[in-house]
């Protein structure tokens, strides 16, 4: 067994073991469903309530992806703007940190005030949650581009745009994808927060209603769905990242491919 597959096997063992231990502890201490439901019960709930949960899952996924998409666009635009010059970087950074340190939950009521409850505030919350890491990473990637690499281009009389497209942005890709992995999970947080506060659809809303009905297995089923969606998107972006920015990690498979 190669070290790589061994690591994967142990990861799988750890995950399965975690749920087995959970189940065992619930049986052992006779934990009530109202407090912590058993994993088997959660899976049964998922199966039983699946048809009802499905549209909410789609709603949450849709909201998250739309918010994330806008977040990427705005994040890149702002990042390029801020990272393109030392001056812009130094001037804009404090304001950016200021915005980033606002707890995003606090702005949901404002969005609801402006746009009513429903999908729009959820999309916006997802968006503002994921913008900051993208902006910071893109800007940092651009601002730290080695001057020698730029000199090569400048000696060829390349325009600013040429340098951005051929040196700045490709060099920033590893930073950008690292931020995407963080951002996509944050986008989920944003969506769920907003759905919990002001929506009648989505997994956040389902969990809110279930907890007020003391339907704890359903709450945990919602958590499972969110975890699954989050992990799936993370995995997808990891895959894209290793395809596009393999040069930064110098993987042998990439080099040969």
């Amino acid at each position: 067994m190669t070290p790589h597959t061994r690591r994967k096997v142990w990861s799988a063992v750890l995950i399965v073991g975690f749920f087995v231990l959970w189940e065992a502890l619930c049986w052992l201490f006779n934990v009530s469903d109202i407090v912590v439901p058993k994993p088997s019960q959660i899976i049964y709930t998922l199966y039983q309530r699946g048809p009802a949960l499905w549209p909410h899952t789609l709603q949450t996924l849709y909201t998250t992806l739309v918010g994330f998409g806008f977040g990427i666009l705005i994040g890149i635009a702002l990042g390029v703007l801020i990272g393109s010059s030392r001056l812009a970087y130094d001037v804009a950074y404090p304001l950016l940190v200021g915005f980033a340190s606002i707890p995003k939950v606090a702005v949901v009521p404002i969005f609801v005030l402006w746009f009513g409850s429903g999908t729009v505030p959820a999309v916006l919350t997802a968006m503002i949650m994921c913008i900051f890491p993208i902006v910071v990473n893109v800007a940092t990637g651009l601002a730290t581009t080695e001057p020698e690499l730029e000199d090569v281009m400048r000696a060829l009389r390349a325009t600013k745009t040429d340098i951005l497209w051929n040196v700045g942005l490709p060099r920033t890709m590893p930073y950008f994808f690292a931020s995407l992995k963080v951002s996509v999970t944050l986008a989920f947080v944003g969506t769920v927060i907003s759905e919990t506060v002001a929506s009648n659809r989505g997994i956040g809303n389902v969990m809110m209603i279930a907890s007020s009905n003391f339907d704890v297995p359903l709450v945990f089923a919602g958590l499972m769905i969110l975890a699954f969606l989050g992990v799936s998107l993370y995995a997808i972006f990891s895959l894209i990242e290793s395809r596009i920015t393999g040069w930064a990690h110098r993987k042998d498979e990439f080099a040969m491919g």
Binding site: E148, D151, V152, N166, P170, R171, M173, T245, W247
Partner: peptide, 27 residues
């Protein structure tokens, strides 16, 4: 103008050929 530095300053995300072809893309 062509320029070569003490440091090879190749762009790591491009193949050697694409690096060599970079001036054709710009000039």
């Amino acid at each position: 103008v062509g320029m070569a530095f003490q440091n090879p300053t190749m762009l790591p995300w491009l193949t050697v050929r694409d690096n060599v072809m970079m001036p054709l893309k710009i000039v």
